[in-house]
């Protein structure tokens, strides 16, 4: 039986990684709500965020805060390109759902290979945003990066909630989510809204990638695990509000970390995929799907 210290340490780790999953989950639900498409290439944006930030930081010597901002903008641009060149043509032709899913998987393969060709396949990392740490509370060590993740996560969720509730564009996006035909009739440019959704979602993924790289690493192949865990978090949260996505992510992160303590690291994915299947069977609308009105 693991000790209390081990359990609480893994709890901290779980919340940290869970917040990252939460950000990816919000990215999933932004696109899903606006278009009815699940972008299976979501994880690739996480990878791109970390890779771009690292390249800007090390090859061009740009300070980390500026690298992070430029990287986020670049990844958002990639998201827009994916929307314009892949998703939109299929969307206009009323392509079947599974063809679009396969297309997003193909986009993931394409971007990963381009990254190998241009930036190499070596895993890379950069120092934490704030030097020093970790903060010790009893035997539990909390790296400073954890507070960055927590702070940025909270800030983004707050900003997104405001965006969806207060701004004209955010409301237009929600209108598209409720009924695309009606939204179009009301004069909302639905296709442009989809571009906004992809940019937003890619940007969120990039932020997640930039935040996680110091504590783990980034390489061309991290997209799939992050994408899948983000999707599971989105399903637990129920594709609803940003808060639900974040909570779903934290739940998944904690379950995963505790599973590592009990069963060993090899079973991490098996556990989280089993969680996914159980949630899909018994709570098909997510844990919060029945509880809350759509934000």
């Amino acid at each position: 039986m693991p000790s209390v210290a081990e359990l609480s340490q893994s709890l901290v780790n779980g919340v940290g990684i869970g917040l990252i999953y939460g950000l990816i989950a919000i990215g999933f639900s932004v696109i899903y709500n606006a278009s009815g498409i699940v972008n299976f290439a979501q994880g690739v944006f996480v990878m791109l965020g970390g890779m771009f930030a690292h390249t800007l930081l090390t090859s061009y010597g740009i300070p980390i805060w500026l690298s992070a901002i430029i990287s986020t903008v670049l990844v958002a641009a990639v998201g827009v390109l994916v929307q314009i060149f892949v998703i939109n043509p299929m969307w206009r032709r009323n392509a079947p759902l599974f063809a679009i899913i396969l297309a997003t998987l193909a986009v993931q393969l394409l971007i990963e290979q381009v990254i190998i060709l241009t930036l190499g396949d070596r895993p890379r990392t950069y120092p934490e945003f704030t030097a020093g740490g970790p903060l010790k509370i009893g035997t539990v060590a909390i790296p400073y990066q954890f507070f960055w993740v927590l702070g940025v996560g909270a800030l983004l969720v707050f900003a997104l909630t405001q965006f969806f509730n207060r701004t004209r564009m955010g409301r237009a996006l929600r209108a598209c989510a409720q009924n695309r035909e009606a939204a179009a009739l009301l004069g909302i440019p639905v296709e442009r809204m989809l571009i906004v959704a992809f940019a937003l979602s890619a940007g969120l993924g990039a932020v997640a990638g930039i935040l996680i790289t110091p504590t783990q690493y980034t390489a061309y192949l991290i997209g799939t695990p992050f994408g899948i865990n983000g999707f599971i978090a989105a399903i637990i949260g129920g594709f609803g509000s940003p808060v639900a996505g974040l909570v779903g992510g934290v739940l998944l992160g904690v379950i995963q970390s505790e599973a590592i303590v009990f069963f060993g690291a090899g079973f991490r994915n098996i556990i989280s995929l089993t969680v996914l299947l159980v949630v899909l069977m018994y709570f098909p609308k997510g844990l919060f799907g029945g509880l809350e009105k759509k934000a």
Partner: peptide
Amino acid sequence: LRLRGHYLAMATFSLGLITYDISIQ
């Protein structure tokens, strides 16, 4: 198979991934 659309896609995708992980572990 009670699931539909993306949920069915993801549930079956994860089925494949679980089997893959088990075959390694």
